[in-house]
Write a protein that binds this DNA or RNA. Structure first.
Lengths: 215, 215
DNA sequence: GCCGCGACTGGATATATTTACAGCATGGAA
DNA sequence: TTCCATGCTGTAAATATATCCAGTCGCGGC
């Protein structure tokens, strides 16, 4: 994907935030208003550029026909403040493979009303965990994982990572040599060794909580 | 959530599928076409019904303004006697002294705002888990356990039991002979054998959910 | 029978939304 | 200097959408 300019990144981030907040992509007018443009056409121009660069896909003559193409090179968490509407709870935005990494599509499945103060660190959204690689720390298949977007992760923290096409939950470790190890918390699963120079590793966020419904 | 008719369920499913396929909810016309209606108004009527039943939320005059709410199934309970005061969240119960009712006001440590529909079965209160006897099923020391008061427990269900002076979380099994076994989900812990004739075993409630904050 | 509810058809209308066209300004590259 | 990408304003037209109104049909309860 071609690199985005700061302005274009803000447009992209707003689309993402709107998806999470409202369940649907924004219109040109909504983008213009949010970014302070007087004309919706400014937003239209940005969208064309984003589409040309491969960051999004546009549906022709389709209202709110904007799709995020996976793999935002940057963690995009510059202005998480955009996420503060709170009143309706958290969006469940997809599935995370916590085992053999499975393809994760970014979309909103539903919303769950969990207040900001339930987790020590407020979550920005929830992901449905798939797989059993983190059962050792009580994160089971089907659990909802509270995720807070972040731009950095410290040794030993549990984070949500994107490795190429896959999204996975693992415990993060980085050695002095720069090698990264994504550690599973289940003896049946091997750790994942990553060379940040070679592999495309993106931090999607930090795990801040778990919610499970017992049937 | 009120129960949906088969037709209504098909509409709901289509909304979900469209969300997954295109990244945005469908329009009335798209719903009508997909389900074979000649008029978009048929879809509109269905949407109104779904909204009334709480399955979705509709945005006014907003294109594709459809949000899935939470399909976790069961209607909110009617008899939430334990939920005495304000709907300001669930009470977190701390240490319970021997012989005292678990729901006594003095045991309430704080309140956590978790909506009724977060767990498939709404919880009446939250209990702070002590010990690691249930780590095998992802219930860890320090977790908040959602508990629903109940008068009976079936084989295999996880419940909160009072055994004399102690309150414990275990999986329940009753044999044909009437002997009760409270099973730990951790190899390091032995099961507890109970003779209901002899021992004082009280069911405080059923485990309906888990909430954990990751630091 | 009468009524409410679930499931529709058909048509009309007010908005919402996309998109094209015409410009303007800036800054870097050829 | 000219060309081109970025980043905008403003207006207008063409569509896409939501929503209202007026009916129809069948079914189960009162």
């Amino acid at each position: 994907m071609e690199k985005l300019t700061p302005k274009q990144q803000r447009v992209y981030d707003f689309i993402r935030d709107t998806l999470i907040d409202t369940g649907a992509p924004p219109t040109r007018a909504e983008i213009a208003q949010a970014l302070g443009f007087a004309s919706a056409n400014a937003a239209q121009a940005h969208l064309r550029t984003l589409a040309r660069k491969g960051a999004i896909e546009l549906g022709s003559r389709r209202s709110r026909g904007i799709r995020l193409v996976n793999n935002s090179g940057e963690p995009a968490s510059v202005d998480t403040a955009a996420n503060d509407d709170t009143d309706d709870g958290l969006a469940v935005i997809g599935r995370v493979a916590a085992g053999e990494p499975i393809l994760a599509v970014e979309h909103i499945e539903r919303r769950v009303r969990i207040a900001d103060d339930v987790f020590a660190t407020p979550a920005d959204y929830l992901l449905t965990v798939r797989g059993d690689s983190m059962t050792g720390v009580g994160i089971l298949d089907g659990d909802l994982l509270g995720v807070k977007t972040a731009s950095e992760v410290h040794n030993g923290q549990i984070g949500v990572f994107r490795l190429g096409e896959d999204v996975t939950v693992k415990r993060f470790f980085k050695s002095d040599t720069g090698a990264v190890r994504l550690q599973a918390e289940n003896p049946a699963h091997a750790d994942i060794q990553v060379d940040p120079e070679q592999d495309e590793l993106v931090l999607e966020g930090l795990a801040v909580g778990v919610v499970r419904s017992i049937h």
